[in-house]
Amino acid sequence: MSSVRKALESLYKGTCTVKAWESVKDPVTKISTQKEVLKFENQPCKLSHEKQVSATNTVGPAVLSQTTKLFIAPELEIPAGSKITVSQNGKTTEFSRSGEPAVYTDHQEIMLELFKGYA
């Protein structure tokens, strides 16, 4: 493990569980049904939040939005549309993956949205 990766992972303060909605074949009936499948559990990670305020020309309050990014090990292949449950700083939140991950040598970054249900 590189020293850069060790330094990055020392910042990981959370853990996450990744689940995906997949077709699963019953071994007895041979019938396939859609089920939630566990991909990874208790993976060290870090959530980063960035709040953005955009002023508009209309009457009313400024619009506030938040960008949430997950930092995690680069070798984990997290399928599109996965449900990612992150526990960090005493809070557990469910997210869905939005967009492709930015994979680097020592980590990957995945933009997240609050989970509202499988697509």
Rank of each mutant, 00 (worst) to 15 (best):
V59A: 15
I110V: 08
Y12R: 14
T105A: 14
P61A: 11
G90H: 00
L11M: 06
L47C: 06
E100W: 11
M1Q: 03
A55S: 15
E50T: 10
P101R: 00
E113V: 12
R97I: 03
T15Y: 05
H107G: 10
S23G: 03
G117M: 09
S96E: 12
I110L: 11
G14P: 04
C45G: 07
V4Q: 12
T29E: 06
G81Q: 09
L47W: 04
L47Y: 05
G81L: 09
V24K: 01
Q66G: 13
P79W: 05
I72K: 02
M1W: 02
V4K: 14
A7G: 10
V53S: 10
F71P: 08
Q34V: 15
L112N: 09
I84D: 07
E113R: 15
Q108F: 08
S98Y: 07
E41I: 09
V103M: 09
G60C: 02
M111W: 13
A55V: 10
G60T: 01
I110T: 00
S23Q: 09
L114W: 10
S3Q: 11
E50A: 12
T58W: 07
G99A: 04
Q52Y: 09
G90V: 02
L64K: 14
D106H: 09
E94L: 02
L8Q: 11
S10W: 10
K46W: 08
S98F: 06
S48K: 12
P44G: 06
R5E: 15
R5M: 12
T92G: 05
K35E: 13
V37F: 12
E22T: 10
T17R: 13
L47F: 04
I31K: 15
L76H: 08
S98G: 06
C16H: 01
T93A: 03
K83Q: 14
I72P: 01
P27I: 00
H49R: 13
V63I: 14
A102T: 08
A20D: 10
Y104C: 08
S2A: 00
N89T: 03
V4C: 09
I84N: 06
M111K: 15
T33H: 14
T58Q: 14
I84P: 05
I72F: 06
S54W: 13
E77S: 11
